[in-house]
Design a protein around this nucleic acid. Structure first.
Lengths: 224, 224
DNA sequence: AGTCATAGTTGAACACGTTCAAAGATGGAG
DNA sequence: CTCCATCTTTGAACGTGTTCAACTATGACT
């Protein structure tokens, strides 16, 4: 469950100070090297108190996710405002993510290691991440909606989630990307966006339509 | 790296008894609930001795991973021998994996965790996993080579690796699949194989060819 | 003001994965 | 046989995430 319930100002303040402390320490020392004791001390609370607000160390990291997510949403506004064609909008949003995430790349590996486990609340597929995931999917919905892209209705409904999946793939590549400034990931985005654009326009071709319908059907069957 | 170096019989025996003990306990009590102390006791060795052979609890799990790989290769022989069309061969090999991996599903997340950590030698993308990865890709090369599939040369060369990537995607789905007997994963395979078959045959269509060439170009650019 | 349920806070204690210095076996060289 | 280097084995000790019973603060209601 993510936090939407009202909270007393004092409690909210304590909660925030724990997040801030964790942020500082994660950033300077990495995830694994940062202990809950250190976080508690940095925040000026007891260990048990930190656990009162965050039921595990991983839940604490969720704040990181949210921060990147928020920064990405903000950084996406510019390309979404200026770009009108689908290709430019998608490119802008994906590159905005690479920009925003760059400072975290160093310890992102440690980070995503824990996120890859299905039982982990950090998993992008988990219930705990639902809010952030929906926000990210909505971003891609905006990429499509105000663009010039024409699609069959069945595909149009699924495309935001598919683009989010694409983004997860790019993230996976990014995590393994050791090139300076993650240049290879940027190249990947630059090169793959036009291809995706062309592929999507191909979906209206007579011979291709049937396959697209099947794919949409598959998605419906497979969704939980 | 998997173990090909010669080892003394006594040491090998101890090593194997630790694996066996871990197998039993993981299977009966799950990964998290099984302690290294319990494994050591079950194997009749000290805790430190278990660490002499396996440098971490996760490395112990990798013994599982290797076992799945071997079993999959063996289980794939039957469909590869009996099926002649591409679709049937691919389906057979993918379902063979789901069959073979089923007993390990419960704690499969634990070694999938390693897959996401870029620096880990256990990552399927790592140099250390190259041999196992190549073996898996070769399996898919055999799926294609003796089948009825006709492809443009550029694509044919890349397809085994792409199918391996597809398999990684299915593994990702499987890891998150909590349905009984991983039925949903089986459904995914059943449904997606015909679609992939149709998509691949579409690649020879005039309007589609250009995109396929671009994709092949992208793969070449992105490969390390 | 007094009462009481609820929210917030504490740090010692627990269980676990992992490490390490020390000890024991092994086997080849002289 | 003796020596010595290397492989193997040990279990106590360490650091970690997490739990918990006990304690304190808050604020609403009489």
């Amino acid at each position: 469950m993510t936090d939407t319930a009202p909270r007393s100002s004092k409690a909210e303040q304590t909660r925030q100070s724990i997040i801030d402390a964790a942020m500082r320490l994660f950033r300077s020392g990495g995830y694994d090297q940062t202990t809950m004791r250190a976080i508690a001390e940095e925040a000026g609370v007891s260990v048990g108190n930190a656990y009162y607000y965050f039921s595990s160390k991983e839940h604490l990291v969720q704040a990181y996710y949210d921060q990147i997510q928020d920064a990405h949403a903000e950084a996406s506004e510019q390309p979404l405002a200026s770009e009108t064609d689908f290709s430019g909008r998608l490119r802008g949003v994906l590159l905005a993510w690479v920009d925003v995430a760059e400072p975290y790349h160093e310890f992102a590996g440690k980070f995503f290691k824990n996120a890859a486990e299905p039982s982990s609340p950090l998993s992008p597929f988990s219930e705990d991440s639902a809010a952030a995931r929906e926000a990210a999917i909505d971003l891609h919905r905006r990429v499509i909606d105000d663009s010039d892209l024409k699609l069959a209705k069945g595909l149009r409904d699924e495309l935001p989630e598919l683009l989010w999946l694409l983004q997860m793939g790019i993230v996976l590549f990014w995590v393994h990307d050791t090139s300076a400034g993650q240049k290879r990931t940027r190249d990947l985005v630059e090169q793959s966006v036009p291809i995706i654009d062309r592929m999507l326009r191909l979906t209206r071709l007579p011979g291709v339509r049937g396959v697209v319908d099947d794919i949409v059907g598959l998605i419906h069957m497979i969704r939980p």
